[in-house]
């Protein structure tokens, strides 16, 4: 299924030099989204951008392979073709990466699914094949839905048409009222993939931060929460992370190249959280709150975050032993 069939071609027969210029221009504008290049020799390329090119994928047969480093530079120098430009938020980028890394297998397919049967179909596929990614294509909208069996039983969704890309509940509402049937494919997730690890890690971090700030807000109040958020924003701006804290609520617009990169960033943010909140309520109490928050996370999320918070909490333990 062509992921960007609903998007118009922006530039036909683009040369490598012009492509390079276009990429440079978009980097200057802090572009978030996707470049999709169809080469004359049926070779297709995806560039996932979040300010700069974060990841590139090329198709070999039915599979998508990440292209990195020198191979990516060499492709950019020699490849031209038809270009589609697709601005989209980091949530959509994350789903697209999951899709590209999990496309090998299609568990179930439905070619003519009316809108009222869409949700039951997803539910059914989830029950039969476990966690997975649904790719839907209708007219004029297409997109991706990730089923996520956590305690809150939430799902992540991104949908787009020729003009725009949306995420969240709004897309569901649009799908519910769609007049035309959908073409659906269900792709089971490879839980060992790095895209999935990064996705889970980001989700865990967001949940953790939300809970920790909720606790902090009850103790220190709204204004102090705002000031701590400002402190964290200074760090994020300095490091050019597309993360913003607004009165303790995290707006996550950063797309990571890999789960390791995400781990490094989150580890630094945990340390900054400890420092900023510690200035107000004392680092010992922040550590205690972090431990309590960790316990309230789902087990998968807890196991991902533990190594990152572990160092911060171990300082306390070693001090207590001493």
């Amino acid at each position: 299924m062509d992921l960007l069939a609903s998007r118009d071609i922006a530039v036909q027969g683009i040369s490598p030099a012009y492509l390079s210029t276009l990429l440079h221009m978009h980097r200057e504008e802090e572009f978030d989204g996707l470049f999709h290049l169809t080469h004359q020799e049926e070779e297709t390329l995806f560039f996932l951008c979040n300010g700069e090119i974060k990841l590139a994928f090329t198709r070999t047969g039915a599979h998508w392979q990440p292209v990195t480093g020198a191979a990516q530079d060499s492709l950019l120098q020699r490849i031209g073709g038809d270009l589609r430009i697709f601005p989209c938020p980091s949530t959509a980028l994350r789903l697209i990466r999951l899709y590209l890394e999990n496309l090998q297998e299609i568990a179930v397919e439905e070619t003519n699914c009316p809108s009222e049967r869409l949700l039951p179909w997803i539910e059914n596929a989830f029950q039969e094949h476990g966690q997975g990614l649904v790719c839907f294509r209708g007219h004029p909208r297409q997109g991706l839905i990730l089923t996520y069996p956590d305690a809150r039983n939430t799902v992540d969704i991104a949908g787009w048409n020729a003009q725009s890309c949306h995420t969240g509940q709004m897309v569901f509402n649009m799908l519910r009222h769609a007049q035309t049937p959908f073409h659906l494919t269900y792709h089971p997730l490879r839980t060992e993939s790095d895209a999935w690890k990064e996705y889970l890690l980001t989700r865990a971090f967001q949940n953790f931060v939300q809970m920790l700030f909720l606790r902090f807000r009850t103790l220190a109040g709204q204004a102090m929460t705002g000031h701590v958020s400002e402190q964290l924003n200074i760090l994020c701006q300095r490091q050019r992370w597309k993360l913003e804290f607004r009165e303790g609520v995290l707006f996550h617009a950063h797309f990571f190249r890999s789960s390791q990169e995400a781990e490094q960033v989150y580890q630094k943010l945990f340390a900054a959280l400890l420092k900023s909140m510690g200035t107000v309520i004392g680092e010992a109490f922040v550590r205690q709150s972090m431990q309590e928050t960790q316990k309230r996370l789902a087990e998968k999320e807890r196991s991902l975050l533990s190594p990152l918070i572990g160092n911060l909490l171990q300082i306390k333990l070693s001090l207590e032993v001493a």
Binding site: A220, G278, T279, V280, I281, G282, E283, A284, F285
Partner: peptide, 9 residues
């Protein structure tokens, strides 16, 4: 003691 090191103490 609970707030040790923080301005709330």
């Amino acid at each position: 003691y609970l707030f040790r090191g923080g301005m709330f103490s």
